[in-house]
Design a protein around this nucleic acid. Structure first.
Lengths: 112, 112
DNA sequence: TTGACATACCTAACATTGCAAGGCATAACA
DNA sequence: TGTTATGCCTTGCAATGTTAGGTATGTCAA
């Protein structure tokens, strides 16, 4: 189980990244992320939907109600140009932290 | 400037990782992390001290008041065994997310 | 045809939380 | 003597996140 903070920090970059695979809808995003992470990342709907709404308000993504292969109505989300820019920014931020961490992890631990 | 969420998610692993370099005190941790990140990670004291207190309460680290090279009293923090365990766990969580993200970033983006 | 379950979306409200802002103290230096 | 950098701490309120609930439809088995 991932920590709350890590789930929060990774939500937007993950949604944007998954949408680079092509449009998708909320319920399926949860499953896709679970699948990609090997079951380690478990999103709840109550966490995801507000994030999607916020991202749409920000202009990162846009949505459209459509029927999928089943007869069900689904709200499909698609990347917008703003979203691609945001993803670039998110990537950089993530990598900044990642590089800082790995720099430390590679060091020989010195005893105190 | 890093997002609030990312700062929160990385605080504990970063503190633990920096302390593997040897004991250190709060004020210097802020500077060390700034330095390691090339100025990208800017912690505030109001954010760090409560985290240090929490980590001590959890038994990850222990503290001791001492005088440094200057005449100043400083509160030095040192890793405990619990902290090393916590760091291992944090590493794994971080890497889970990181691998999920990089998996997506490596993919050929398909157009919608 | 009825019930159960999976799919699919949404939000209100409450508890939790984070952090800006302030306070305190000392050393260094001009 | 005033200012800046160092060094630690906490309060209080704003911002936040998650739980829990609601709605609806398709599918399948009994």
């Amino acid at each position: 189980m991932l920590s709350k903070d890590l789930v929060a920090a990774s939500a937007v970059p993950l949604v944007l990244s998954v949408l680079t695979e092509g449009e998708n809808y909320g319920y399926a995003l949860i499953q896709r992320v679970r699948e990609l992470s090997g079951g380690k990342i478990e999103w709840t709907e109550g966490m995801l939907y507000p994030v999607l709404h916020w991202m749409e308000k920000e202009g990162f993504i846009e949505s459209e109600w459509r029927e999928g292969e089943t007869g069900r109505k689904r709200k499909y989300y698609r990347m917008r140009q703003e979203g691609r820019k945001a993803l670039q920014e998110e990537k950089q931020q993530w990598m900044s932290v990642h590089e800082t961490l790995t720099k430390l992890w590679k060091q020989q631990p010195r005893s105190t």
